[in-house]
């Protein structure tokens, strides 16, 4: 009984840790969807770019960890903003399908560029932090998990504050509700969308960092699976909803971790997606998504 309880807690913590990485990525999906009303399928690949930026900075250039992280964030922020300006902005009034196909194209472009530069081999991700695991009797929390949980919690609180309390954050919410009305308030929709891509891509860089630290290896296609799972998490939580992305990501991680531990490692993805489908049949807008009620 005690053993089962211990394994339950250990799996919960590893689930929370992986889930918080999904949540960081899902936030990028959901914010971009909420504000630009598009699915940025290249978002997952930004994670890979962030992770490679860390590898190059630390392993090739020998820079200290903290500088490497800042470089990775900067690279991803610039990349996200540039992708939006070049690939998506000209399609602002195009059909959603054209935008979706462009996003898939950008995703392949990033993967192939990485393939060209780094080849198809997997690179080992540098150990950036040394942190002792903490033991509570039988329960062990790895240093890795502690840092991941701590940092993602801080980021989520900061993001919540930013969206709800700052002028730019409120403008982002205004644009997500009604672009035209936001323009009439003097808000530049283009600039607001750029800021959204910058934030989403910066979060993806951090996610890439933790992903690398958790799994140890990075290749050109590393971003696609966590990208898809985070997209699922965003839909699960209610796409467009920021708390929904956080909740969706964390639940996804926990469900995945428990499925792997108690049901089947091979089936874990099928179980995760099965639960998503079930949730969506009951709540088509996701857990925290809402149908907007408009008053005429």
């Amino acid at each position: 009984m005690m053993n089962f309880f211990t394994s339950l807690i250990n799996n919960l913590i590893s689930g929370l840790s992986v889930g918080s990485i999904y949540a960081l990525i899902a936030l990028g999906y959901t914010m971009v969807y909420g504000i630009a009303k598009m699915l940025n399928f290249a978002h997952g690949d930004i994670i890979m770019v962030g992770a490679f930026a860390v590898i190059v900075s630390v392993s090739s250039l020998g820079l200290p960890s903290i500088i490497a992280i800042l470089i990775a964030v900067a690279v991803c922020v610039v990349l996200g903003v540039v992708i939006e300006a070049i690939a998506y902005r000209p399609l602002r009034n195009a059909s959603p399908l054209a935008v979706l196909i462009t996003a898939i194209g950008v995703s392949y472009l990033l993967q192939n560029l990485a393939l060209l530069i780094f080849g198809s081999t997997q690179y080992s991700f540098p150990r950036l932090f040394q942190m002792e695991a903490i033991h509570f009797g039988q329960i062990t929390i790895s240093g890795q998990s502690i840092i991941t949980l701590l940092v993602t919690t801080i980021i989520m609180i900061a993001l919540h504050f930013f969206i709800n309390q700052t002028k730019i954050g409120k403008a982002m919410r205004a644009v997500s509700e009604d672009k035209g009305a936001a323009e009439l308030m003097g808000i530049s929709v283009n600039r607001t969308i750029s800021v959204t891509f910058a934030i989403g891509s910066g979060l993806a860089a951090i996610a890439g960092l933790f992903y690398g630290l958790t799994y140890g290896f990075i290749g050109p296609y590393t971003g696609s699976m966590p990208g898809i799972k985070a997209f699922v998490a965003a839909v699960f939580g209610g796409i467009g909803s920021i708390p929904g992305a956080m909740l969706g990501g964390i639940l996804l991680g926990v469900i995945e971790s428990f499925s792997k531990a108690y049901i089947s490692t091979e089936l874990s993805d099928a179980i995760v997606f099965g639960i998503l489908i079930l949730v969506l049949t009951i709540r088509p807008f996701g857990l925290l998504g809402k149908k907007t009620n408009e008053k005429v």
């Binding site: 919410r173 509700e177 035209g180 009305a181 009439l184 907007t292």
Partner: peptide
């Protein structure tokens, strides 16, 4: 410009 249908931000 106060648009037709008010278009206030309903969720704010």
């Amino acid at each position: 410009h106060v648009p037709e249908g008010r278009r206030i931000f309903l969720n704010m």
